[in-house]
């Protein structure tokens, strides 16, 4: 157990990058859950992971490879909306298989593959922090604008069509935003932590919150709080961050579920 690592300047950039993502990912997850599309997050994360590995093998920037792959996945998903969950499953299988083949056949990809799948924060640098900070600045006002169309599309699917309007551009924009954020999270935190942070905090917030706005606040707070705790635990006990973060979130959710049942 080494508590000195908690204050090591080496980990400041990964910590800040992860903290920003831990606040933003649950917000994206709230709307993915609203649309019953949380599986899309896993598909985007797997695609980003495979894209990052492919970029590295091709001697390109991993972050760009991950972003392009996830955004392409979001675009495909948005354009073939009818395919629904089948499209996500096919994307996941494609990315999963491709990623493992790259790791198996390219020596350089092996280490990066472990980092992406396990969630190893040491690879997160200032480029990641800058990209994430810019994304947060872009994503928050965009989500604010997209919130009403996304909620209306869920509760009153005919609202826009009856008025001669189409909500598809807004839905596609959200898909692209979700792909971008999940891709950045994947190349910064790894597949497991990115998916855990997009899935579990909204799951808990849906149970806890008194309303939608409160749900957004709850999910962001749970995400950030869990991240801080998981970051500290993984450093102090020298464990990979991804599994620690995922297990912590699952345990918190189980505790909340048990508490709810008792009440």
């Amino acid at each position: 157990m080494n508590t000195d690592l908690l204050f090591d300047p080496l980990f400041r950039v990964p910590f800040l990058t992860g903290l920003l993502l831990a606040g933003l990912l649950p917000l994206i997850g709230m709307y993915l859950r609203l649309r019953n599309e949380w599986l899309a997050a896993l598909a985007f994360a797997q695609m980003a992971s495979a894209g990052a590995l492919l970029a590295m093998v091709l001697d390109g920037p991993m972050i760009l490879g991950g972003l392009l792959a996830a955004v392409a996945a979001a675009l495909v998903k948005g354009l073939v909306a009818r395919a629904g969950a089948s499209a996500y499953a096919l994307m996941m299988l494609l990315a999963w298989g491709g990623g493992i083949l790259l790791v198996a056949n390219h020596p350089l990809a092996e280490q990066a593959g472990h980092a992406l799948f396990d969630g190893q924060l040491y690879f997160t640098g200032e480029g990641h922090l800058l990209a994430v900070a810019l994304t947060v600045v872009l994503a928050l006002p965009l989500l604010l604008r997209l919130s009403r169309p996304l909620l209306l599309a869920r509760f009153f699917p005919e609202f826009y069509r009856a008025r001669g309007l189409s909500v598809r551009p807004q839905l596609l924009l959200f898909d692209l935003l979700a792909g971008l954020v999940v891709a950045l999270a994947t190349v910064s935190l790894g597949v497991m932590a990115a998916f855990a942070l997009v899935f579990v905090p909204p799951l808990m917030a849906y149970r806890l919150a008194a309303g939608w706005r409160a749900g957004l606040v709850w999910s962001a707070l749970i995400g950030m709080g869990s991240f801080v705790l998981a970051f500290g635990l993984s450093l102090v006990f020298d464990q990979p961050f991804g599994p620690v973060c995922a297990m912590l979130l699952v345990m918190l959710n189980v505790m909340l579920a048990v508490k709810s049942v008792r009440e």
């Binding site: 909620l151 509760f155 917030a205 849906y206 806890l208 008194a210 309303g211 939608w212 706005r213």
Partner: peptide, 8 residues
């Protein structure tokens, strides 16, 4: 399960 109020 969706946390939305009547007012919202």
């Amino acid at each position: 399960g969706v946390p939305l109020t009547g007012r919202e």
